[in-house]
Design a binder for these strands. Structure first.
Lengths: 226, 226
DNA sequence: GACAGAACGATAGTATTGCTATCGATTAAG
DNA sequence: CTTAATCGATAGCAATACTATCGTTCTGTC
């Protein structure tokens, strides 16, 4: 698994000017970029600070990414690509549709606890960024254009896969796509709430996220259509 | 109803330096602020532009709000206060718990279609801002501090009310708070998806949002506990 | 109708940000 | 050996996010 991940996580959409995975500097931009965004938050994070951190010039970073927004899109895309791959892995060879759906939901909604030694990116930091900053990646005036460019492909794909798992269990469900995207996005939001606005969740919500979403999906999926 | 709203929608939390509802300039800041944020999006919106729009000086606006982030928090707070009030109204005098829960969900998740002539704020613009920008109000490094200040009170209250309605129908539900906040926040997110990333939702999702959430909640609420 | 105090508009100024351009030096590829 | 790519460094610019100051007007009060 670990080896496979290393090989397979690729961000294919051209959100970059120059492929950061292809060069040493590019990889350091990603690695330290993830650490800095996690540490400072997106608003306080600047290419200037990242450059000092890397001992390089601001302009060098601009050769890879147009601006920090694009870098964020790239990082979030990487995150969802990784989760998508993990999803495929976690659901492989499970014959029973219901069991596979349950595993899929758990795979997607489980918090990341492992630093992940197989990648130069810190997976836990990446998870924290996805939780706290991913809304900023798409909630802008530029969404429609970026969407047309295919910037959110990996997020869409993981939602779509979950939708397919839902449909296999319940082919006549009226809202499989909404249900799927609600689980994928909702698991991030609920994690944020658990960390920062705990009155919006139950106690120990952090560790019971998956349980909540599994129950949520299965109760809709089991409810007879009127 | 319309008269009542005018009287009752108040943002009590001190996110402002000087109460904008108390003066003519303050009200114009809110009114044009809403219009400009809606038009430009939060990133392109600046106090400078708002000042020109209002024919006043930037510094005058800074007398009311520390910065545009605070203005956003205020506006979003106003929005949820308004919805909270609407919720109370829509669920008043309904004796049956299940019927009241269904009405509560519809009240909260229904898109705003009415400009709302009873307020100087454009309700539709406000709704669009709540859909597109509200995540930016709380997803910052400052959440915890702002949360302690009580900045998100109205959002918390509406989630809490929905939670209570859920518990009256299903006192032993294991995740009433998560379910409630998932509905409140999810209805905004799903609306955003419907507008900008439609493959994440069903066709006509915009008009079927409430239907989806009513079904979602009622199926969990009806599912027997194991 | 004089006076104190708020509210406002206007101007100025500063540090930071976000970005573009240019230019050698180093390295890698043909 | 030459050419192109890559990088680090510096410079510079327009916009942003404030802060400070100050005179004017408008308010209510004695």
């Amino acid at each position: 698994m670990q080896r496979l991940m290393q090989v397979n996580v690729q961000v294919t959409e051209p959100v970059y000017l120059k492929d950061p995975q292809a060069t040493e500097l590019g990889r350091r931009i990603l690695e330290q970029g993830v650490r800095l965004i996690d540490e400072l938050g997106l608003e306080a994070f600047t290419f200037g600070k990242l450059a000092t951190e890397l001992g390089t010039a601001e302009s060098s970073i601009y050769r890879y990414f147009e601006n920090k927004h694009r870098l964020l899109i790239y990082i979030i895309g990487w995150y969802w690509s990784w989760r998508e791959y993990k999803l495929a892995f976690d659901t492989a060879n499970i014959a029973d549709n219901r069991e596979r759906l349950a595993r899929a939901i758990r795979s997607i909604t489980e918090p990341v606890t492992d630093r992940g030694s197989f990648s130069y990116l810190d997976l836990r930091a990446l998870y924290r960024i996805a939780v706290s900053e991913s809304a900023k990646a798409y909630m802008t005036k530029g969404v429609d254009a970026e969407h047309r460019e295919g910037c959110f492909g990996s997020f869409k794909r993981i939602c779509d896969r979950l939708k397919e798992h839902i449909l296999l269990v319940r082919p006549d469900h009226p809202f499989p796509a909404m249900l799927a995207s609600n689980v994928v996005d909702g698991s991030m939001i609920q994690r944020f709430f658990a960390d920062h606005l705990p009155s919006l969740t139950e106690k120990q919500a952090r560790t019971r996220l998956s349980e909540f979403f599994v129950e949520l999906v299965f109760s809709t999926v089991n409810t007879p259509r009127s």
